[in-house]
Structure formats: structure tokens, C-alpha cells
């Protein structure tokens, strides 16, 4: 399984834009984003490593979710959004004219804040993406679905009721199903937009364990409001404030010895 997940292209040479840059897999260079006339992201440059969990933190409206949604071009769906700068994933400019957005989204999966399983059976939820990408045979579907549900730590709970509605699952189970659905099509990157913000502490803990488990296979970018969560699960942390990237460093450094005063104030809970 791991072989298929490795990127097809070797990243280009390393530039020294922001702190942790061993082997940048996602290269965000000078990205600004405008909703009409208002500027939501201001000249953001950050390089994210492969098979590492990077957390985006910051107060509401700081642009962290907006930047996340740039990485699989979900912002394309919003009228009047304009993006400057460049984003490369695995060396490919994902905003180049000849980029197939469908292929991009297959390689960059996403888990949303509000769990959004399709109103279909558990089986069909995971099968949906697989079918879209050409897995048609029943036996292939069965294997891939079991594999993904196991990877998402949901298999044991649902294996006896695969064909009952996904809407009958608990909130935490639904979110893990959404993760299973995202990883079933074997992406390289998984974007998570506050995946545990609507869950109780136990369900949150399970999701966090799962994220730590998944980083062996995937590059994970997670947006979170929960500082402890960022500290627990991420390797690198980027702190955003009103559309700007204030600081990007290893999570330990951000939480123990940040370079910026604003970062320190935020992570210590003095504002935000």
C-alpha cells in the first residue's frame, strides 16, 4: 500500500522560505487570496513536508481554512475568488492551466469540519469515490472498502452493518467514515478542516489517534482551533493572524519557545 502512496515526482530543490524544510512536498509561494476586493490571505509562503502532520492554528477569520481549501482548489467553487502566487504539490503547480482538478482532488483528499457522509449506506459512502475513479468490480470494491475502514479504525464497529445507513452512526463514527471515504481513493495528502470540533472528547481522542496512525502513509494538513490538539498531534505548526502567516516552526518550538510575541500570546491563551 505504501508504494502507491509515494509521490510520482521528486520535489524540486529546497528553498529556504520558512523554518522546517527537510524535503518540501507542498510548496506555497507568495499566495494571496481575494474575495472580491477584500484580501483574505496576504502573501503567504510556507513549505510543508511529506508524511508529517502540519497544523494551521489561529483565531477565527485568520485565513487558515481558506489556505487549506486552496490546496485542493475547493475555493474554485466560490464566485469572485482570485488567487495570486503559486502552490506546488509534489513539484506540480496545481494552479497551472493544464491541471486536471479532478486528478488533483483525487490526490489531495479532504475531511470537513461537519461530518458529511452521503445519505447512503456505509458501504456506498466509501464505494462512491472508488467508483468515480474506476474501481468497478465487486471484489475489488469489497477489499478496498474493508481496507479503508480498517485504516480509519471503524471496521470493527461497522463490519456487521455495512449496508445500513451511514446516518445511523454516531458523530465520531461518521467523521471516521468520512476519513475512510477520503483515504479509500489513496490520496497523497489529506486536508482536515477542524475534523474534531463537533465531537465529544472521547470521539476526538479516537480521531487524534487515527491521525497519528495515518501520517505513516499520508501528508496531513489539519486546521484546528484546539491548541492542545495541535500540540498533541502535529509535528509542525503554522500560526496565522488576520490573513498573515506569523510563524511557522516545529510544534515544540511554537508551543515552548516561539520567536514571535503574537504567537506566544496566542498559544498561551492571552488572546484569540
Amino acid at each position: 500500500m505504501a508504494e502507491t502512496l509515494t509521490p510520482k515526482l521528486v520535489p524540486k530543490e529546497i528553498s529556504a522560505a520558512s523554518a522546517p524544510t527537510a524535503a518540501p512536498f507542498i510548496e506555497i509561494e507568495g499566495v494571496s487570496l481575494y474575495y472580491g476586493a477584500s484580501r483574505a490571505l496576504k502573501n503567504i509562503s510556507v513549505h510543508l513536508e511529506e508524511k508529517v502532520v502540519t497544523a494551521f492554528i489561529g483565531p477565527s477569520g485568520c485565513g487558515k481554512s481558506t489556505l487549506l481549501r486552496c490546496l485542493n482548489r475547493m475555493n474554485d467553487l466560490i464566485d469572485g475568488v482570485r488567487i495570486e502566487g503559486s502552490i506546488k504539490i509534489g513539484g506540480h503547480d496545481i494552479y497551472a492551466k493544464d491541471v486536471d482538478v479532478i486528478e488533483l482532488r483525487k490526490r489531495v483528499g479532504m475531511v470537513f469540519q461537519k461530518s458529511n457522509p452521503f445519505p447512503k449506506s456505509i458501504y456506498e459512502n466509501v464505494a462512491y469515490g472508488l467508483r468515480l475513479h474506476g474501481v468497478k468490480a465487486k471484489s475489488d470494491l469489497d477489499t478496498r472498502i474493508e481496507e479503508s475502514l480498517q485504516q480509519a479504525a471503524l471496521w470493527e464497529e461497522v463490519k456487521d452493518r455495512l449496508h445500513s445507513s451511514a446516518l445511523g452512526l454516531s458523530g465520531g463514527q461518521q467523521q471516521r467514515l468520512c476519513i475512510a471515504r477520503a483515504i479509500a481513493i489513496k490520496p497523497e495528502v489529506i486536508l482536515m478542516d477542524e475534523p474534531a470540533s463537533a465531537l465529544d472528547p472521547i470521539a476526538t481522542a479516537r480521531i487524534e489517534d487515527l491521525i497519528l496512525d495515518l501520517k505513516k502513509y499520508f501528508t496531513i494538513v489539519i486546521v484546528t482551533h484546539n491548541m492542545q490538539q495541535a500540540a498533541r498531534i502535529s509535528d509542525h505548526t503554522a500560526f496565522f493572524y488576520i490573513g498573515e502567516l506569523v510563524e511557522f516552526a516545529s510544534t515544540t518550538k511554537i508551543f515552548t519557545n516561539p520567536a514571535q510575541k503574537r504567537t506566544e500570546d496566542y498559544v498561551s491563551g492571552r488572546f484569540g
Binding site: 485542493n72 475547493m74 467553487l77 479532478i102 486528478e103 482532488r105 483525487k106 483528499g109 479532504m110 470537513f112 461537519k114 458529511n116 457522509p117 452521503f118 445519505p119 462512491y128 469515490g129 468515480l132 475513479h133 468520512c178 471515504r181 477520503a182 481513493i185
Partner: peptide, 15 residues
């Protein structure tokens, strides 16, 4: 129909 469902589908690479 919630936007979330449309987004979920599009994010999986559906047209």
C-alpha cells in the same frame, strides 16, 4: 440539500 454533501463529493474528485 446541504452544501457539505456537494463539497464532499467534489473533494473526492467527482465532477
Amino acid at each position: 440539500i446541504p452544501t457539505g454533501l456537494r463539497e464532499a463529493s467534489l473533494a473526492l474528485g467527482a465532477t
